[in-house]
Design a protein around this nucleic acid. Structure first.
Length: 603
RNA sequence: GGGGCCGUAGCUCAACUGGUUAGAGCAUCGGACUGUCGAUCCGAAGGUUGAGGGUUCGAGUCCCUUCGGCCUCGCCA
């Protein structure tokens, strides 16, 4: 077998005159009757091979039969292309390989889709034939970038004294949070392991163990419905530190993120990353992960709306709801139907019952601005002026308002703001705006179950000043949690943990987890806290989402080599699949009902 | 669990209101061709219109069921 000396894509004009051997896949062949050209592809790129019947008649004859995606090795001398024959479109376009040795290493069936066209091909087909899809330069760039990111992360944490420690994949189900993936135990009939939703308790126990600084790039599993940016199986950069406060954790980790963005994209992240309180974020952006690439803040106009003669607004205000909205700059071009069908339909998905609107335009007399809309008549000139002033609205702007409970209004307006930001082109692609969101409430009241839920998770520590409120005013407690948000996407979140067993017990009480339940689920952990737990805290980043941002895709499947579909299937292997009766017997399991067979890969 | 979009040749798409033998480009196969690079030119082959049922003289098109993909609400401490 010919042994490779160079990658195709790495050859440059410095190699002219050099004898080389390249290996790869045939990207295309051009047979001119006389000369045959083959573009050979490997992970580094393409190089042009030339087969000349005058000098190498035997090899030329073989080359004529070669087809796309065949695997070949070719040896020969690199030569400069003659004048006018260079191809400036390819990095190797100044040179070519005059082949005098050729080996066909493997033939290939005609691929189910053309590698060059894969961008426009049905994703289903790409996933079923992932090995072909992954040959595409774009996909290899992403895979390489993901590798480099992971490497940078490891190097960074290593330099900062962190140890990478593996934690179990087969763990104990703790039925808080997301649905677990379960693994039946053979040795203990009727008992199950759970795949980790995160290594949360293990990393805290490592702090109790005196490890001091831990990180891990780790697979996590949550059996919930996937989304464009969510897979049931995903990868976390998991971090935990001892003897630290929030600032220490944020400092180390924003350093990691800044290093990654600098090295991968050349983007300078200004440090320290700005901080914003949860309250400010929800108030101005309607959500705890603000997209700061553009302004267009939400404004509450309940006070003005309450005095209007517009019944929808005044009655919402009376019932304790709010009237809140945003002012879309230069959005005058939206037609009434765009707004009342398109945008109102959009917010309806989030539970908003309606979307009121005003177009801002100069009044007929004078240079004042006024509001135009079917409901403008319910607002006196004064109130219109107040609204215009509240939003800082200008001529040709469009004001959009939702009147509802505060929760619904925010839930609808936040995505509307993001959508309009994109539709109106209010930011540049390639712009990154980082923010730490801090001062989260520790709990939120769960009206359905009449109890508190953790906003972050049950191991999050209250801020020191609020410890006393655990007994008196739990809803008012702030936590020591922090989320790192980029362009409206949460890429990481963490907290300083509770290291005092008594405080932890109190929190479980408030979450309506009984002592007995707490013992059952977390007993091992509570016990660990009693044996000298240091103050500690940490964070976890979604590696997949980080890579999505770095490569600029909104499809998480693009950054995972072998992803699953929205119904949790691997189209390449057809997992999940049936198992033998013998396997079930050994596990003491009986299947009650079969759903339809997942399909069996291709054919 | 709910809502939306989609499924026609290997791939990407077309086929007006239901109406001849379901078309095109790319890929494939055969041939031609003296330097191409999305090669070009000539020719050929390629279809259970995702599956099943129904309405109709007649269904890719209408109706029902079902399978699958994507987006989304719920869900995701």
């Amino acid at each position: 077998m010919l042994k490779r000396t160079h990658y195709c894509g790495n050859i440059r004009s410095d190699h002219v005159g050099r004898a080389v051997v390249v290996c790869g896949w045939v990207k295309s062949y051009r047979d001119h009757g006389n000369l045959v050209f083959i573009d050979l592809r490997d992970r580094q790129g393409l190089v042009q091979l030339v087969f000349d019947p005058q000098t190498q008649p035997e090899i030329h004859k073989i080359a004529r039969d070669i087809r796309c995606e065949w695997v070949i090795a070719a040896g020969g001398r690199i030569r400069r292309r003659s004048e006018g024959m260079e191809n400036p479109k390819m990095p190797t376009g100044e040179i070519e390989l005059a082949v005098d040795q050729l080996e066909i290493l493997n033939k290939a069936r005609t691929p189910p889709f053309e590698v060059d066209d894969a961008e426009s091909v049905n994703e289903e087909l790409r996933l079923t034939n992932r090995y072909i899809d992954l040959r595409r330069p774009r996909m290899q760039d992403i895979i390489r970038l993901r590798h480099r990111t992971a490497k940078l992360v490891r190097d960074y944490f290593d330099e900062n004294g962190f140890w990478e420690i593996e934690t179990p994949m087969l763990g104990k189900s703790t039925p808080e949070g997301a649905r677990d993936f379960l693994v039946p135990s053979r040795l203990y009939k009727g008992a199950f392991y759970a795949l980790p939703q995160s290594p949360q308790l293990f990393k805290q126990i490592l702090m109790v163990s005196g490890v001091d600084r831990y990180f891990q790039i780790v697979r996590c599993f949550r059996d919930e419905d996937p989304r464009a940016d969510r897979q049931a199986e995903f990868t976390q950069i998991d971090v935990e530190m001892s003897f630290v406060d929030s600032e220490d954790v944020m400092k180390v980790n924003e350093g990691m993120v800044a290093r990654v963005f600098k090295e991968i994209l050349g983007v300078e992240v200004p440090l320290p990353v700005r901080r914003m309180s949860y309250a400010e974020s929800v108030n101005d952006y309607g959500i705890d992960r603000p997209d700061l690439r553009f302004d267009m803040k939400l404004k509450d106009i309940t006070d003005i709306a309450a005095q209007s003669s517009f019944k929808v607004f005044s009655s919402v205000a009376e019932k304790g709801g709010i009237v809140k909205g945003l002012c879309a700059p230069q959005a005058n071009r939206f037609s009434r139907s765009d707004i009342e069908k398109g945008l109102a339909g959009f917010v309806a998905d989030y539970g908003a019952k309606g979307l009121a609107w005003f177009k801002v335009a100069p009044a007929e007399a004078g240079d004042r601005l006024q509001l135009n809309s079917s409901i403008a008549k319910f607002f006196t000139a004064d109130r219109q002026a107040q609204i215009i002033e509240r939003f800082g609205a200008k001529d040709d702007d469009l004001i959009l308002l939702v009147a509802d409970t505060e929760a619904v209004a925010n839930k609808a307006l936040a995505p509307l703001r993001v959508k309009l930001g994109a539709d109106l082109g209010l930011y540049d692609e390639g712009q990154f705006e980082f923010v730490w969101v801090v001062d989260f409430p520790l709990f939120e009241w769960n009206e359905d179950n009449k109890r508190y839920d953790s906003l972050h998770h049950p191991f999050t520590s209250p801020i020191a000043d609020d410890m006393g409120k655990l007994d008196t005013d739990p809803g008012d407690i702030l936590s020591q949690a922090y989320d790192l948000v980029v362009n409206g996407s949460e890429i990481g979140g963490g907290s300083i943990r509770i290291h005092d067993a008594n405080v932890q017990a109190k929190v479980f009480d408030l979450l309506n987890i009984s002592r007995r339940q707490a013992q059952q689920r977390f007993g091992f952990f509570l016990k660990a806290l009693e044996y000298g737990a240091p103050p500690h805290g940490g964070i976890a980043f979604g590696l997949d989402r980080m890579v999505m941002l770095l490569v600029g895709t909104d499809n998480i499947r693009d950054v995972i080599a072998f992803p699953k579909t929205q119904r949790g299937q691997c189209l390449l292997t057809a997992a999940p699949g049936d198992v033998d009766q013998a396997q079930l017997d050994e596990l003491n399991l009986r299947v009650q009902k079969h759903s339809h067979q997942p399909r069996t890969g291709d054919e």
